[in-house]
Simulated assay, not measured.
Amino acid sequence: VVPVGGVTEVVKFALLTKNSSVSVSKTLLGITSHRLVTTLTMLAFLSLSIVGLHVPISRALVLILPATALILINLSLFLVPRSKSLESLVNKFYRRIGKNPNIKIHEEYLSDFSSLVKRYNFVLGATILSMLERVANAAHGYALALLIGLKPSFWQLVIGFDSIYMIIWLLPIVTPGNIGVYELTQTGVLSLVGISRGIAALLSVLTRVFIVLGEYPLFLAAAVSFGISIKSITELVKEWK
Rank of each mutant, 00 (worst) to 15 (best):
A223P: 03
S20E: 04
L147N: 05
L213H: 06
V1S: 14
L15R: 06
V7R: 08
V4Q: 07
Y165P: 01
H106G: 09
V7K: 07
R59Y: 01
N121I: 11
F45I: 06
F45M: 11
V189N: 05
Y120R: 14
S23G: 10
L147D: 02
E235Y: 11
Y94D: 01
K151C: 02
P81H: 10
K18N: 13
K241C: 13
L124Q: 08
Y182F: 15
K99F: 10
F226D: 02
L192V: 03
W169T: 00
K238N: 13
I71S: 06
E215W: 09
N100I: 02
L63Q: 02
S111Q: 13
I199M: 08
T27L: 05
G188C: 12
Y142M: 11
T32N: 15
L132C: 07
W240R: 09
V189K: 03
T39M: 11
V117A: 07
K151N: 08
K18M: 12
L116C: 10
V37N: 03
A126H: 03
V51E: 00
G141Q: 02
V209C: 07
L70N: 06
S83W: 07
A67V: 09
V24Y: 10
K92S: 10
G125Y: 02
K18G: 15
L170Y: 03
E9C: 07
G214Y: 14
L89P: 00
T185Y: 05
G180R: 13
A60G: 05
L70P: 06
S225Y: 09
S232A: 15
P152A: 01
V51L: 03
G180D: 11
E239C: 13
S191R: 07
S232I: 15
S20A: 06
T32K: 06
G5Y: 08
N121Q: 14
L40H: 06
T234K: 15
G214D: 08
P176Y: 05
V193D: 04
I103Q: 09
Y165H: 09
T185I: 13
L16H: 07
V135Q: 03
G149N: 13
P152S: 05
Y182R: 14
P217V: 12
A221P: 04
L132P: 02
H140E: 06
K92M: 10
K26T: 14
L43C: 07
L147M: 04
I228C: 06
S23M: 11
H106K: 13
R59V: 00
V22K: 04
E215A: 03
S130N: 12
L63K: 00
V51P: 00
N137M: 12
V158Q: 00
L46F: 02
A143Y: 08
I167H: 00
V24R: 08
I64C: 04
F78D: 11
K238I: 15
S115Y: 06
I103V: 15
V123S: 05
R82A: 09
A14G: 05
N121P: 05
I105F: 08
V193P: 00
G30C: 11
E87G: 08
V80C: 01
L75N: 05
L132V: 04
H54Q: 02
I179C: 10
H34E: 12
I57H: 02
E107H: 12
K18P: 08
V7Y: 02
L129T: 08
F219R: 12
A145H: 02
G177E: 13
K104T: 05
T207G: 10
M131P: 05
R95S: 13
Y165K: 04
S88Y: 08
Y109S: 09
L61D: 00
L206T: 03
I179G: 09
P56I: 04
